[in-house]
């Protein structure tokens, strides 16, 4: 069996990052082991934003060039983005419970914005599933892919204004802590390995979409 290098490399990098994060990165003085989730949470959030940014770019270029490969890429990137956003939404509250004392905090702008990001791209996937014609599906989802990206700053700003006008709970919220070098290296490794994982997933999902479309085209041809 031929070994596909990208998933192999991405998998090895993620495993290596996790081993380094767990065994070879110092414990954070105040948060202890809970802080380790940072090395999954932050790169997952980075990949989620990268994924949806690339959906918007691919959507915009699709409406211009009408190349079905761009639509397939947007489809793949959105699905992978939703998976990583789900990881962010699970790891965030898991960390918040011991540190903030609560799973969910409506005043945390990033957490709430991420939830809405998840809603937008889940509805993007539902929209794709609700349209039969591939050409119509590509155009509609491109429109939603672009508008969704335009919406994110507005949600972020409105939640920010909402949060700053309400009393903040008094908890030890780390305000932009400067990381020791060992932690910084682990974080950088996690960002790189998760980005590799993103591309591995998108490529696999893209290949599936390409084969599905090719099979559909053959069926249409025979019929």
């Amino acid at each position: 069996m031929k070994i596909s290098w990208l998933p192999t490399l991405a998998g090895a990098a993620v495993i290596g990052t996790v081993i380094r994060a767990v065994f070879f990165t110092p414990l954070e003085a105040r948060q202890g082991a809970a802080q380790k989730i940072f090395y999954i949470h932050v790169p997952a959030a980075w990949v989620a934003f990268l994924a949806f940014f690339l959906v918007a770019i691919a959507s915009g270029v699709y409406l211009w060039l009408r190349d079905p490969r761009l639509d397939r890429f947007a489809e793949s990137s959105a699905e992978v983005g939703v998976v990583f956003t789900t990881v962010v939404l699970i790891t965030g509250p898991l960390w918040a419970k011991p540190i903030w004392g609560t799973f969910w905090a409506w005043w945390d702008v990033r957490l709430v914005s991420t939830l809405f990001l998840w809603f937008i791209y889940v509805s993007y996937i539902v929209l794709r599933g609700a349209i039969e014609s591939p050409e119509l599906r590509a155009r509609y989802s491109a429109v939603l892919g672009i508008l969704g990206a335009l919406l994110i700053p507005f949600i972020h700003l409105s939640v920010y204004l909402f949060a700053t006008m309400h009393p903040m709970p008094i908890v030890g919220k780390p305000s932009a802590p400067s990381l020791p070098i060992e932690m910084l290296i682990t974080l950088m490794l996690s960002l790189v390995s998760f980005t590799l994982l993103y591309f591995a997933f998108v490529r696999a999902r893209y290949n599936y979409a390409a084969e599905r479309d090719a099979a559909a085209a053959r069926t249409d041809h025979d019929a």
Partner: peptide, 20 residues
Amino acid sequence: VNTRLAELLLPMLALPFFVP
């Protein structure tokens, strides 16, 4: 209106945009 889900899809698409 051009999708299979029709009226079911409109709230799902529009409500996130109504949040701000």
